[in-house]
C-alpha cells in the first residue's frame, strides 16, 4: 500500500497538481511574478520605447526623477530609466550566459569524474579544491585583471570560477546515479562512459543542477556588477548596472537616483532568481512529494 501510494505520488507531471503546488508555495509565486516584471522591463520595454540609452542631453544634466525622466538623468543628461532597461540586457544576458557555460562545463566534468572514478576523479577533484580554496571574488578579480579589463574577460573569469560548484554538485549526484540498475545494465550492453553520461547521467542529475543554476544567476549578476563597479567589467559608455552604480558614486550625496536605481534593479533581479531557485528546489525535492 505504501509502495502503491508513492507510485501514485511520483506519477508523471500532473499539471493541475503542479499548479496547485506552485500556488501553495508563496516563495515560488513571488519569484515568478518578480521575474515576470524583470523580463517585461528588460526584454520588451526597450524595444517598445525605442530610445537610445546613449543619447546625450546636456541641458538636462543630473535631473531629479520626474515624469519625463522616471529615474532622473546622469551627468551628461542620459535617461537613467532607459539606461537601466538596456543595462539589464547586458547584466542579465551576461549572467545567463555565464551560468549556462559554467553549468554545462561543470556538469560534464563532474559527471565524468564521478563516472570514471579512480585517478581521473582524484585529479579533477583536487584541482577543483584548489579553485574553491581561494575566495571566488578575489580569484575572479585576479583573473579579470590578468586578462585585461573588458566585459568579455570578466565573463570568462566568472565562468571559470563558477565551474567547481557544478563539478562538485554533479559529481555527487553522479555517484548516486552510477549505482542505479539502469547504469549497470547499460554497461552490460556495452555502453561507453560518454554514452552513459549522455543517456543516463545527465538527464537524471539535471534538476539539482537547474536549481543551482537558477540560484546562481542572482549571484553572477552581482559579480558582473561588482567587476564593472571596480572597472574590470563593462567599460563606459556601455550601460551596465554595476558600471552605472560605479559612475554614480561620486554624485551619491546630492543625486542619489544615479546609483540607487541601477542598484535597486540588481537587488530586485537577484532576489527574483533566488526565490525562483528556492521554489524549484522545494518543488523537485523528493521529500516534498506527499508520500503518506
Amino acid at each position: 500500500m505504501m509502495a502503491a501510494l508513492s507510485r501514485l505520488a511520483s506519477r508523471g507531471i500532473d499539471w493541475r497538481r503542479l499548479r496547485h503546488r506552485i500556488g501553495a508555495s508563496p516563495v515560488t509565486v513571488t519569484g515568478l511574478v518578480m521575474l515576470g516584471i524583470v523580463v517585461f522591463c528588460v526584454g520588451l520595454l526597450p524595444n517598445l520605447l525605442a530610445q537610445d540609452p546613449n543619447v546625450i542631453n546636456l541641458r538636462a544634466r543630473l535631473a531629479a526623477p520626474s515624469w519625463s525622466h522616471l529615474f532622473g538623468t546622469d551627468e551628461v543628461g542620459r535617461d537613467i530609466f532607459i539606461r537601466v532597461l538596456h543595462g539589464g540586457q547586458v547584466s542579465i544576458g551576461v549572467a545567463l550566459f555565464v551560468v549556462a557555460v559554467s553549468a554545462s562545463v561543470g556538469t560534464v566534468i563532474g559527471g565524468l569524474s564521478g563516472l570514471l572514478g579512480g585517478m581521473v576523479d582524484t585529479a579533477i577533484m583536487r584541482l577543483m579544491d584548489v579553485v574553491l580554496a581561494v575566495p571566488s571574488l578575489v580569484l575572479t578579480m585576479a583573473l579579470a585583471a590578468a586578462l585585461g579589463p573588458s566585459l568579455t574577460n570578466a565573463v570568462i573569469a566568472i565562468a571559470v570560477v563558477r565551474v567547481p560548484t557544478y563539478v562538485r554538485l554533479s559529481r555527487g549526484q553522479t555517484l548516486v546515479v552510477r549505482e542505479a540498475g539502469y547504469v549497470m545494465a547499460a554497461r552490460v550492453f556495452g555502453a561507453r562512459p560518454l554514452q552513459i553520461l549522455r543517456l543516463h547521467v545527465v538527464p537524471n542529475i539535471l534538476s539539482p543542477v537547474v536549481v543551482q543554476a537558477t540560484l546562481d544567476v542572482g549571484a553572477v549578476i552581482l559579480m558582473v556588477a561588482g567587476l564593472s563597479f571596480i572597472g574590470l567589467g563593462a567599460q563606459p559608455p556601455a550601460a551596465e548596472w554595476g558600471a552605472m552604480v560605479s559612475a554614480g558614486r561620486s554624485f551619491i550625496l546630492d543625486q542619489w537616483w544615479y546609483s540607487a536605481f541601477p542598484g535597486l534593479a540588481i537587488l530586485f533581479t537577484s532576489i527574483a532568481f533566488n526565490l525562483l531557485g528556492d521554489g524549484i528546489r522545494d518543488l523537485t525535492d523528493p521529500r516534498q512529494k506527499g508520500r503518506s
Partner: peptide, 25 residues
Amino acid sequence: ISIVLQDPNSSLDPRMPVWRIVTEP
C-alpha cells in the same frame, strides 16, 4: 550476453521512454 536485474524500479531509466529503454542495447 544480456542481463535482467532484480529491482525493476532501479533498472529502468525513469527519464527514458520505453522504446528507448528497450532498444538501448
